[in-house]
């Protein structure tokens, strides 16, 4: 009996410690958060009562929630598309065998490994009016630009997207490069014999071969970008006048600045539902293509 259990479930004792930690620190909190979203929980108030759908009703008429909602969607879609396009361009450049390219490949991913808190400081410093690197550069080019970009209603949101690009594009570039290097040269030679130029062989040979890597990169970056908190929180805090407010930052501020953890949980639950839809759609598409 025991022998057959081990044969069927031999992996269980080994993966169990990880499962327990994940259960206590992700699954249980998810359920608790869901329950909290139906209460008036407040960190300053010891008594908590169920209020039914009150939080969700409030949320649907909360203009800041809708702003954050729209911003989160725009940010995720724009950042992921731009990252992919620039990532492919970067990978194509990194693939070329020219002098110095190896060194360049090795340093380009530096932006991905440093803390976001440091990235936030660096970019805030660079867009300072008067002495920031960007503004010095613009002045040099003859453009009058003496604004603090993070403080500008028009520039803050694009700058948040630029921050995402700065951090993630090199990762795309290096990962797609790895996928491109796995393509045998013979495929390109065959395309060339068929009379394909560099652009056509990119679409007929390169792109289909790196398709799987693109899917993996896009999937994880949609999740990471939508859930990303510190890029916005540590630069603009959602401002100026909510122009960069996104859902994770709104949840955080409701919970830890206003202490309304019940309401914060309802926004967090909406975030989870959106990600679920995305995940289910992804699995559907994936299975359709496999089968």
């Amino acid at each position: 009996m025991k022998g057959s259990f081990l044969r069927k479930n031999g992996a269980l004792p080994l993966i169990l410690p990880t499962l327990i930690i994940m259960a206590v620190f992700t699954v249980l909190p998810l359920i608790k958060g869901f329950i909290l979203s139906f209460t008036n929980a407040n960190l300053l108030n010891k008594s908590t009562a169920y209020v039914g759908l009150e939080n969700y009703k409030k949320l649907f008429t909360d203009p800041i929630f809708w702003l954050a909602f729209v911003h989160s969607l725009i940010l995720t879609v724009t950042a992921v598309i731009l990252e992919l396009v620039f990532g492919i361009i970067l990978a194509l450049a990194l693939k070329q065998k020219v002098p110095g390219i190896k060194l360049f490949r090795s340093v380009i991913m530096a932006s991905w490994v440093i803390p976001v808190a440091a990235t936030a400081v660096m970019f805030t410093f660079m867009v300072e009016p008067g002495y920031g690197y960007y503004n010095i550069l613009l002045k040099f080019l003859g453009v009058k630009a003496n604004t603090f970009w993070f403080g500008s209603l028009n520039l803050a949101f694009p700058l948040i997207i630029i921050l995402h690009l700065w951090r993630n594009v090199p990762f795309y570039g290096i990962a797609l490069l790895a996928a491109m290097q796995a393509i045998p040269d013979t495929q390109y030679e065959a395309a060339e014999i068929d009379g394909a130029g560099p652009i056509r062989s990119f679409f007929t040979v390169t792109l289909p071969s790196i398709r799987n890597m693109i899917i993996v990169m896009v999937t994880i970056h949609v999740l990471w970008t939508f859930n990303n908190f510190d890029m916005v929180y540590l630069t603009t805090g959602g401002g100026p006048v909510y122009s960069t407010q996104v859902l994770p930052v709104y949840v955080y501020q409701e919970a830890w600045t206003n202490y309304t953890t019940g309401y914060a949980s309802s926004i967090g639950t909406i975030m989870f539902v959106l990600l679920m839809f995305y995940f289910i759609a992804y699995i559907r598409v994936y299975q359709q293509q496999e089968g």
């Binding site: 992700t26 998810l30 608790k32 958060g33 908190f229 949840v251 967090g268 989870f272």
Partner: peptide
């Protein structure tokens, strides 16, 4: 679990 919103999990 990678897709769970961490800001939500952190409250519990």
């Amino acid at each position: 679990t990678q897709m769970f919103p961490i800001v939500l999990l952190l409250i519990p």
